[in-house]
Nucleic acid binder design. Sequence first.
DNA 1: TATAAACCTTCCAACAATGGGAAGGTCAAG
DNA 2: CTTGACCTTCCCATTGTTGGAAGGTTTATA
Lengths: 172, 172
Amino acid sequence: MNIGKAAAASGVSAKMIRYYESIGLIPEVARTEAGYRDYSDKDVHRLRFIRRARDLGFSVDQMAELLALWQDRGRASADVKRIALEHVAELERKARELMEMSETLSHLAGNCQGDDRPDCPIINVLSEQDGFESCHEHAQPRFGKTGIEPDRKRRASSDSTVSDSKGGGIRR
Amino acid sequence: MNIGKAAAASGVSAKMIRYYESIGLIPEVARTEAGYRDYSDKDVHRLRFIRRARDLGFSVDQMAELLALWQDRGRASADVKRIALEHVAELERKARELMEMSETLSHLAGNCQGDDRPDCPIINVLSEQDGFESCHEHAQPRFGKTGIEPDRKRRASSDSTVSDSKGGGIRR
DNA sequence: TATAAACCTTCCAACAATGGGAAGGTCAAG
DNA sequence: CTTGACCTTCCCATTGTTGGAAGGTTTATA
């Protein structure tokens, strides 16, 4: 099965399949004589696994962990559960953050006439002069670097097994 | 006031101040003889406005709109309100998406023993064979986890000769 | 005053995850 | 044999932010 078929069958785009291969999330797959990637049903199964994990919001690193556990018949379900619950906590944190912003804003909008006059509590809050912004003090960084190792080269011709996949072995 | 002071006073990092200037969100500021950026209180006030908008999750494009309205004494509060409410809708949509993922996952985790045996409903769902996925049907919207739609249409002149920044459009 | 620390400048790269597209090779059907 | 639909690799863009290098400037101190 070529990459187009595999993409259709798995729901992961061909672009992303190549990308996942390039970063080592999935092993290099078989090739035809002409160099076309050739996917087995097992490969497609793995791609579907990935798509579902992605649809649940898992990061590439987490998917790598989950894939490793999936393959590991001696896994402890506790490990899977831990990853899932950590992710749940993160999802809830983000959702809460978004909801807080949303609530602040819709409260302000509720007090805005929304007519052709300029006066508006939204603009007023944004342009407040002083430094003690009563409610919404969120000094948090919008992006946290969650310990991902830097590594630029994505050429791993030989040694497909990526030996150590603990602690985030995905290189980009 | 140099950029470090302006950053401390506004809560926007020096890096981001330069970035916002480079994309045209804020105008080029005065310079000292040595080439250091020199911020007035008015400039800092604008930066604080930006920081508050950013804290409410507004995108650079929306901040540009809001800044324009802020400066416009003949603005209609309806315009501000519209921007805010569109953003609220987007925030709510994203939050809902995250919560759905979170709920699906925590439900699965709730049925997982979390012991040293391998059996685990989370893994089972991820590796389901057919296209069954009863609960979490998402049709095929196929966008990122936080669903940031590409409404990108900004024109970049393909080369950054540092010269043109008067256009008014935000370029990156 | 000399010198070092603490700034500032610009430019380049990285991150997440994905898509767009070019330049070229391959395969199937007409 | 040509056409078109594939495939290949490679580079670029996205959004917002940070990190760092290489070099100039200001300031505080020895």
